[in-house]
Each structure stands twice: as structure tokens, then as C-alpha cells.
């Protein structure tokens, strides 16, 4: 068996910094140039290293965080879907609705109606961990999910 491929922990720590920055401000635009700067790597090196380290491309990671925030706002606030879309970084309500549906499996409105019915039994767990547990899975590309869903 070949030895496991190693990644320099110092590079991983700097990639983590870029991931943290997206977590802290997922509503902002995060072009690769900006992320590479945070990590102190070249743009070409960044996207590939990030995917190697965390299993998905940086842009796709950002989408999951935005949808995660949106689901929390839908669940915990009375703000309108349009407001939530703008607040979580989407410039178009249509794109937000489409990506939301692709990832969560239902529309923002349907999601809100369902979860607001459900009782909350997680109040004793610190918020950030509950939120992480609610993080939507996104292991395949959104376009790939659409393609599969529409396949006969």
C-alpha cells in the first residue's frame, strides 16, 4: 500500500482561515482571489488545495453556508423570503429559490411551514453546534442533482 498522501499542516491551517472567513461572512462575495489572499496561496493552488482538504470546492462550500443561514432565518425569524435571500448573499430571488430547492428538497416557503410546526428539543445545545448539525449536505454539484432528478 502506498503511504498516505500528506498535506502540509501549515497550509491546512491557512486554508481553514479562508473557510472561517467564509463562515463569518457568507453573504459577502468570495472570489478565489480573495480566498487565496487570506490563505497566502496562489489562486490556482487555492481552489485545488481547498477541495483536497475539505472535499468540496470553495464556491460550493459557500453555497451550503448561505443556505444553512437561510434555513435558520426561515426557522427562527418572521422575515420574508425576499429579505432572507438578500441577507444571505443572493442577488436574485429566483437563484436563491432554485438553489434552495436543489439543496433542501423543498421551497423556502414549504420548508418554513414545516419546521415551524416542529417542536424544538435542542435548546440546551449551544447554537453553533445545532446550526452545524442542520447544515445541508452538498456532496454533488447542484447542476448534477438537477440532472439526476430530471432523469427518467
Amino acid at each position: 500500500m502506498p503511504p498516505a498522501r500528506r498535506t502540509d499542516p501549515d497550509l491546512l491551517r491557512r486554508l481553514l482561515r479562508a473557510k472561517d472567513r467564509m463562515d463569518a461572512a457568507s453573504h459577502e462575495a468570495w472570489p478565489v482571489r480573495r480566498l487565496a489572499q487570506v490563505s497566502g496561496t496562489s489562486e490556482a493552488h487555492f481552489a485545488r488545495s481547498f477541495k483536497d482538504a475539505f472535499g468540496l470546492p470553495p464556491h460550493r462550500y459557500l453555497l451550503t453556508r448561505r443556505i444553512e443561514r437561510a434555513t435558520a432565518f426561515l426557522r427562527d425569524t418572521e422575515r420574508s423570503v425576499t429579505e432572507i435571500a438578500m441577507e444571505t448573499g443572493w442577488s436574485s430571488l429566483g437563484t436563491f429559490g432554485r438553489i434552495f430547492h436543489d439543496i433542501v428538497g423543498e421551497s423556502p416557503g414549504a420548508y418554513r411551514a414545516r419546521v415551524q410546526q416542529e417542536a424544538h428539543e435542542l435548546t440546551r445545545v449551544p447554537h453553533c453546534f445545532v446550526s452545524a448539525a442542520h447544515r445541508p449536505g452538498l456532496t454533488i454539484a447542484v447542476s448534477e442533482k438537477r440532472r439526476r432528478a430530471s432523469a427518467p
Binding site: P3, A4, R6, T7, P9, D10, L12, R13, L15, L16, K19, D20, A53, F54, P126, C128, F129
Partner: peptide
């Protein structure tokens, strides 16, 4: 050393318990 190298990677990726 092989295990230690893996642990160092996990720590650097922020994957240790909260």
C-alpha cells in the same frame, strides 16, 4: 509518526471537538 502526521492534519483543519 504516521498517526501523528494524520492528527496534525486533522487539528490544522479545525476538526477537533468543540
Amino acid at each position: 509518526e504516521a498517526t501523528a502526521a494524520t492528527v496534525r492534519e486533522i487539528v490544522a483543519k479545525g476538526a477537533m471537538p468543540p
